[in-house]
Amino acid sequence: MIRDITIGQYVCGNSVLHRLDPRTKILSTVSYIFALFLIDSLWCYVLNFSLILIFYLICGISLKMVLNNVKPILPILILTSIINLCVIRDGEAVFSFWIFSLTDRAIFFTLTIFFRIILLIFSSSLLTYTTLPVDLTRGIEKMIKPLAKIRFPVEEIAMMISIALRFIPTLILEAEKIICAQKSRGFNMETGGFIKRAKCMVPILLPLFVCAFKRADELAVAMESRCYRVGGQRTSYKTLSFKKLDIFFALGFLAVLTMVFMINAFFR
């Protein structure tokens, strides 16, 4: 079901990860993702994978939640994996059958892509699971603040992100309602080819857009009524501050990543 998708949702808790400053978490996640794309040794992926599993264990979030996020893209992931396996011909054949042959390079490449995507979802989900959307946007806002000097609309961007995050659960519920309503009018979206299926989405997407626009319009009026003005001066209810914990975590995390890169260099 759609409501099982939990991207962008926060899970209440009080673990070390929950208590970290959002900026620490954002920077760690970004560097982790960078690392994912820079390393090319399978051992390092295994290492990175166990690292993220440990994090999930620490903050007590069930893996089932994040697996639900992986599910929707799984078909595409498997399909591309199969294509990769079939198409990549260089390297030594490990296994061959009729006209197909699997090379070690193909297996390696496929596994790398697979790990990268899965870990990308795992790490970014972990960030939103342990960070309140408001903190997340506040963190981003603080980090891109210097850009305000070159007239970059920092506060507006932050406001947009926070509203988008706020409306994710609302819109997911709405989509589900509309699907149910059209189903009960005999609508069937599971049959037919790609184009037919795409066309079939109109009865779902159109009402969803209409509702989203209506919501946006009403929200804009409500915000104006509460004295919001684009580009206006604002104060902040809460401010962020780095604590000792952040320094420990950042140093520790940096050490682990450096280790990963060293292993990567040795085992290639």
Binding site: K177, A181, R185, G186, P207
Partner: peptide, 30 residues
Amino acid sequence: RQNVGLVFQYPEYQLFEETVEKDIAFGPKN
């Protein structure tokens, strides 16, 4: 689904066709 017609809460939000006629016809056509 043919035997039971279900009118959801705020059913007006499920309208999507460009004319009233087409929208009412959506169910029967299906």
